[in-house]
């Protein structure tokens, strides 16, 4: 018998007044998997996460977490969840360790046990040497790691991460990804939101692409790319303001094109061959790049817009 899904949402809606931030989504997350919500600003990612985190009641639709109903069993669900909110919510004036202990107390974990776990978790996020320092002067990446350590204080089996690495530099992001990957290996189910396609590709077994409160596609990163994009992409840069005109001249090259303000994207199974053809047309670009398709391209295809602008 297959285990029941950890999260089930059917026709889930969240309205603020007349505005539907989440406009009816269906989601299932299995135990042990790592699941992502990918979408641009305002897609409804945080609103969805807050409903799953049982701090925001759904307007309509069905939602079950651990098989429980957030409306009636919110406390029990929250006791078993770890939450990394979009904003860190740390007490800047308290030390790193104090932040963890205070938070552990909200779960009614005895103080001594909180301290023991805090030491273990700070070791896990590689911040043992900062345990006694105030949070305020820490870098963004360190604060994020403190928040992740804090979210694990109740030893949750399901961890919700709302944009875990937004605003961090590449190195800090990789450190975080590595820690999250370890958690996943320990069997913790990860549910995260992101508007970075590379993050989704790194961390998610499966994801949904959200836009305007709706799910526009679902699958593994690889299958989404296969379904909605070509193998390769040829990026062409022309003199400013001439993209439209140039694109017109090469319109029949490749399977499909996207004309962005700063470049023309040619979708094709063979980027080098397409570039060769472009040169033969006397439409040589200022610069060009052949790359593999990514979730960014999937998003562009599905919504006509870029993820991060």
């Amino acid at each position: 018998m297959a285990a029941a899904p950890l999260i089930t949402a059917r026709g889930l809606v969240k309205r603020f007044g007349d505005f539907a931030a989440v406009a009816g989504i269906d989601v299932e997350v299995e135990s042990g998997e790592s699941f992502g919500f990918l979408g641009p600003n305002g897609a409804g990612k945080s609103s969805t996460m807050r409903m799953i985190g049982c701090v925001s009641p759904p307007t309509s639709g069905e939602l079950r977490i651990f098989g429980l109903d957030p409306v009636t069993d919110g406390r029990e669900i929250r006791a078993r969840l770890g939450v990394v909110p979009q904003q860190d919510q740390l007490d800047a004036e308290l030390t790193v360790e104090e932040n963890l202990v205070v938070y552990g107390r909200y779960f009614d974990i005895p103080r001594a046990e909180c301290r023991r776990r805090a030491a273990e978790l700070l070791d896990f996020v590689q911040l043992t040497d900062r345990a006694g320092s105030k949070v305020d002067p820490l870098s963004g990446g360190m604060k994020r790691r403190v928040t992740i350590a804090r979210s694990l204080i109740n030893e949750p089996s399901l961890l919700l991460l709302d944009e875990p690495t937004t605003g961090l530099d590449p190195q800090a992001r990789h450190v975080l990804w590595d820690r999250l990957y370890r958690l996943k290996q320990r069997g913790v189910t990860l549910v995260l939101t992101t508007h970075y396609m590379d993050e989704a590709e790194q961390l998610c077994d499966r994801l949904v692409v959200m836009d305007g409160g709706r799910i526009v596609a679902e699958g593994s990163p690889r299958s989404l790319i296969q379904q909605h994009s070509t193998r390769e992409v040829l990026e062409l840069r022309y003199a400013p303001g001439t993209n439209e005109e140039r694109a017109h001249a090469i319109a029949d090259i490749g399977d499909r094109q996207e004309v962005l303000p700063d470049r023309v994207l040619v979708y094709t199974h063979d980027g080098e061959a397409a570039l060769h053809e472009v040169h033969e047309r006397d439409a040589a670009p200022i610069s060009s790049l052949v790359r593999r398709s990514s979730l960014e391209d999937v998003f562009l295809r599905l919504t006509g817009r870029t993820l991060v602008d």
């Binding site: 406390r75 029990e76 006791a79 919510q89």
Partner: peptide
Amino acid sequence: WSEAYKGMAATPLT
């Protein structure tokens, strides 16, 4: 600002 109360609301506290 710190959103500490929001943090509390994400725990079993009501």
